[in-house]
Design a protein around this nucleic acid. Structure first.
Lengths: 105, 105
DNA sequence: TTGACAAGAAACCTAAAGGTTCCTTATAAA
DNA sequence: TTTATAAGGAACCTTTAGGTTTCTTGTCAA
């Protein structure tokens, strides 16, 4: 039962959601990302820092550019959490039991 | 392309995540929820207000109790967004194209 | 009809979010 | 070897988050 909260927090902001959408297509530098928004580069850098802290993205220094990569596995973790909640709701108790067992095993 | 950001924000806090887990099992009153946490009832009430604002939960006044219900459809919206991001990443372009068409249609 | 219980409301506090501007440092390219 | 570009860092500001305490209001049940 991982810390999905920080991931949800990371994508719980419209700007960061857009950034995720961009990085899902291709890795990008900080300024390159910032140019697509009406806010300043330092603001974008702060958003990226939040996303890095929870492992949603990582940084690769390439010359003078800091390329940011998306880590989709983290989104998968988040998706799993949502799925579990739906399972409780649907009273799909058999599926739930199995999921819990897999989590512990 | 709905406002999923407010939903992610709502589940982007450990306390609220736990509340979602509880309400997925059954609807509950404010104090009843608060008793399960080490924080005060007003604090829980504020968390519930945040969850109500984005439609994740709704309130039913039953006598002197304010019963809170979870709305799983909203979690489904969130799940769809995550799915789309994964599709971009996986370069499952055919599936993506179809999803976009469904969204517009 | 008084008391106990459920909850809202207001006032307050501290820390974090989300911005800004200005300055510095590293790298690439003329 | 200057100059332009990419980015980090610090200082600052304002709003929101996440708590608290205290007080009030509404409802159920002795």
């Amino acid at each position: 039962m991982v810390e999905t909260a920080s991931i949800f927090k990371a994508i719980g902001d419209p700007t960061r959601q857009e950034i995720v959408g961009m990085l899902a297509r291709r890795a990008m530098g900080v300024g390159e990302i910032a140019r697509e928004f009406p806010i300043t580069r330092p603001a974008i850098a702060k958003h990226l820092a939040i996303m890095r802290r929870c492992g949603l993205v990582s940084m690769e220094v390439r010359g003078r550019e800091h390329i940011h990569h998306l880590h989709v596995e983290k989104l998968q973790n988040a998706q799993n959490w949502l799925e579990q909640m739906s399972m409780f709701w649907d009273n799909k108790l058999e599926a739930l039991k199995q999921a819990v067992e897999e989590d512990n095993g």
